[in-house]
Design a protein around this nucleic acid. Structure first.
Length: 552
RNA sequence: GCGCCCGUAGCUCAGUCGGAUAGAGCGGGAGACUUCUAAUCUCUAGGUCGGGGGUUCGAAUCCCUCCGGGCGCGCCA
């Protein structure tokens, strides 16, 4: 990347300045570059002198000393001192032509980095009780999880996308009983829904399906057998539905782990024993407690209840071991904000097991507020206000739904106005970006029909000098920083922002510069710029899990 | 009460490991379609970055404090 080159130049200038006594070096400073907001501040800028002069010396004088000693480079036109002591670099067009050439080249891995290479990451998201349909909240988690996974892969990480299913515990039993109520009623047996039972219409649907399959087989069974049997049948169906919905949304998990399997394999027992061996578990009042307060949590937590039933925390402990045993360097969790109370104990758990807590990363994805026609509804499985992800996809489509989920930072609450996204679909930014992509494809088709070809890999691009062309090329260049930054910050919204700006820069170019003209040489150069733009827009949309249509 | 998140244009939100004159989309106002796709483009109005202190050459960004909103604080998940 260009910034590496600039860093080298600055480092050499620093060494010369030190050798000539222009300043006294104090360790090796970090040399960082940023692209200034204002065009007249150059293409790249560093505040190095401002940092070095902290407390001693005049930053402008130091900056001037560095500027005077800056080695020559074919890529740098001028270096100037500005403001309180910034060093502003104005580059020659060559760096942009290099960017376009690489971006247009399929084999160049433009926008890919290796900062994460050698790191195996497990990212778990969407995980929920399989007792209800996938809702819009899960949709937000799915979109964000997918995008972060894509971003991590783009910087070289080995990524495993994982979905955990809480198929054990009291909630599941309640679910089985709820199905049982409808099942019995189907055969004319009077039955009441249990307190806090599942009330959604899908429960009755499930019961009907099960009746179709097994008939009255379980009517005469004991309540325990009936609940267990129906639970099993219901669970299989719920999981299948979840998987279908998620696949429709474009979310595919590499691994589905069932909580039950952790119990059945003995992993829970083993993990609890390990906590005990390390002195972090003890019997008290008939229950087994995790001494979480020793590790920063504000309360101790129960692992096994006095009635012998393990808590979810017990499975979580085993799950940590299970994941780390599979060789992951880092575990990422996306949880709902209602899990805030579990974060401290999660870190404590990891540490108690002997893993560094900074290998665990927990993000709380904030709530989705759905509004529709002026009415605001809070989407929450608990509160019973559930809008299924399937319904949302029916209403606004997969691309618009995904994109809307990804334009906001995950730690910000998201207001999703279904009516707005639906009614104003043409003005939705996602369509704007897709349109730019389709428009480029249209130009490329036309060029193909007219037999105009883009130049070969080494062909010059020095006729791309229009301000709109320069702006577009500069925007393309930014992609190489945007991807690693978005990956590092786990911030897919940066990609969304970026491709909107890129699409905007393309529109200006399209307005000002006729691509296909009488001038074959110029046409070839502009076509290459189009190809590069198309690839970057397509790549950015791909990172977000949104399609890049050839026609609209 | 304690903890976490949020507070930026009329609305929805970016920007925050401190940088130079704070941005986008939508909405408001005024314009542009014999065109390589008008699902577009141009111009315009709109701000005490919740309030107040502090650190700094420099604060939307860091610290303190207050206010407002959301969420959590169980041998529920």
């Amino acid at each position: 990347m260009i910034t590496d080159h600039l860093s080298d130049l600055v480092r050499q200038a620093l060494e010369r300045a030190a050798a000539e006594g222009a300043f006294s070096p104090d360790g090796a400073p970090e040399i960082e570059f940023e692209r200034p907001r204002r065009r007249e501040h150059g293409d790249w800028s560093t505040n190095l002198a401002l940092g070095l002069a902290k407390g001693a010396g005049n930053p402008r004088t130091l900056a001037q000393a560095l500027a005077e000693r800056m080695p020559a480079s074919t890529l740098v036109e001028t270096v100037e001192v500005a403001g309180p002591g910034f060093l502003n670099f104005h580059l020659s067009p060559g760096w942009l032509y290099d960017v376009v050439t690489r971006a247009a080249d399929e084999g160049s891995a433009f926008g890919r980095a290796d900062s994460g290479s050698g790191t195996e990451v497990n990212i778990e998201y969407v995980s929920a009780n399989p007792t209800g349909p996938i809702n819009v909240v899960s949709g937000r988690h799915a979109a964000i999880g997918d995008a972060i996974a894509n971003l991590l892969a783009a910087v070289g990480c080995e990524v495993t996308r994982e979905h955990y299913v809480n198929d054990a515990g009291g909630q599941l039993k309640l679910f089985g009983e709820s199905i049982g109520t409808h099942y019995l009623r189907h055969f004319g047996v009077e039955a009441e829904l249990p307190d806090d039972g599942y009330k959604g219409a899908y429960v009755a649907d499930l019961a009907d399906e099960i009746v179709q399959e097994i008939g009255d087989e379980l009517v005469e069974a004991t309540p325990e057998e009936r609940t267990a049997g129906l639970l099993e049948l219901g669970l299989v169906r719920m999981l299948a539905r979840s998987r279908t919905t998620l696949e429709r949304f474009g979310t595919h998990f590499d691994v589905w782990t069932l909580e039950r399997s952790l119990h059945e394999s003995g992993a829970v027992e083993t993990a609890l024993a390990r906590l005990g061996d390390r002195g972090y578990a003890e019997e008290r009042e008939g229950a087994l407690w995790f001494k979480a307060t020793d590790l920063g949590d504000d309360k101790d937590r129960v692992l096994v209840r006095s009635n012998g039933a393990p808590t979810y925390l017990a499975s979580d402990v085993a799950y940590f071991v299970h994941k780390f045993d599979r060789g992951f360097d880092r575990l990422i969790y996306l949880l709902g904000p209602d899990h805030h109370g579990t974060v401290a104990r999660m870190f404590a758990t990891a540490e108690a097991l002997g893993y560094e807590r900074d290998r665990v990363e927990i993000h709380l994805v904030q709530v989705v507020t759905l509004s529709s026609g002026g009415t605001t509804l809070k989407a929450s499985k608990r509160a019973g206000v559930v809008v299924a992800l399937n319904e949302l996809m029916d209403e606004v489509g997969v691309d618009a739904a995904r994109y809307t989920f990804l334009t906001r930072a995950m730690e910000s609450p998201l207001e999703f106005d279904i009516e707005l996204v639906k009614q104003q679909a043409p003005e939705n930014p996602v369509f704007y970006v897709q349109y730019a992509h389709a428009r480029i494809c249209s130009i490329l088709r036309r060029a193909d029909e007219e037999g105009i070809r883009t130049g070969a890999a080494g062909a010059p691009l020095d006729r791309l000098v229009h301000p709109s062309e320069t702006e577009l090329m500069r925007k393309l260049a930014a992609y190489e920083e945007v991807v690693p930054e978005a990956a590092h910050l786990r911030a897919p919204q940066r990609i969304a922002r970026y491709i909107e700006e890129l699409a905007g820069a393309f529109s200006a170019f399209y307005r000002d510069c006729k691509v296909i003209s009488e001038d074959d040489e110029l046409s070839a150069e502009r076509l290459k710029l189009c190809v590069a733009t198309k690839r970057v827009i397509g790549d950015g949309l791909g990172l977000l899990g949104v399609t890049a249509p050839e026609r609209m």
